[in-house]
């Protein structure tokens, strides 16, 4: 059994301790907002927050998470920064196919928590690990800028 703190709720999960966090989130906890993309931390689709830092849940085993706080896309609207990002995403209609977008939003919120007013270079650096094959990058950047002014 592994105890995990997901979105503020601590529960025990009957999973092997080397199971990737993403497997637990999607297949055991039923939180399917976080997506599986590449499985090797190269695309960013599976990004969640672990103690506020963006983490690639496909390569992070539950034993490596320990008792740290996990936040997924399902709970991102619980604080003002997350709400601001959600609103900007909707206002600018950022999403095209949408598959990568939970990861994009998780990375964007993490960036705004570290840098309230990120420069273009900051956005490039913090978001470059989140791949979008529809090419919504210009709208992502614009939405982060919009959210930063709220």
């Amino acid at each position: 059994m592994v105890d995990l703190n997901i979105n503020g709720e601590i529960r025990s999960y009957d999973v092997p301790d080397d199971m990737p966090l993403l497997w637990v989130l999607r297949d055991v906890a039923g939180l399917v907002g976080t997506k599986f993309g590449c499985g090797i931390a190269q695309c960013g689709a599976c990004t969640v927050h672990v103690d506020g830092r963006p983490a690639r849940s496909c390569v992070m085993s539950v034993s490596a998470v320990g008792n740290r706080q996990i936040r997924t896309i399902e709970a991102i609207g619980r604080d003002p920064v997350g709400q601001g990002v959600q609103k900007a995403w909707v206002d600018l209609d950022v999403v095209q196919c949408g598959y990568c977008q939970s990861g994009q939003i998780m990375s964007a919120v993490a960036l705004l928590n570290v840098k309230r007013e990120p420069s273009d270079a900051d956005i490039d650096a913090a978001m470059a690990g989140n791949v979008c094959r529809c090419g919504t990058y210009p709208r992502i950047r614009a939405a982060i800028k919009t959210a930063s002014k709220v």
Binding site: V114, K115, D122, D124, A125, A126, A128, G129
Partner: peptide, 25 residues
């Protein structure tokens, strides 16, 4: 999540590769 501001002023292939492929971990 972000490199030292001084690094952003340079056009660097190394930084570009690092931020895309390495920085997330």
């Amino acid at each position: 999540l972000t490199p030292a501001p001084a690094e952003n002023d340079q056009e660097s292939l190394g930084l570009e590769v690092f931020q895309g492929a390495c920085a997330s971990c």
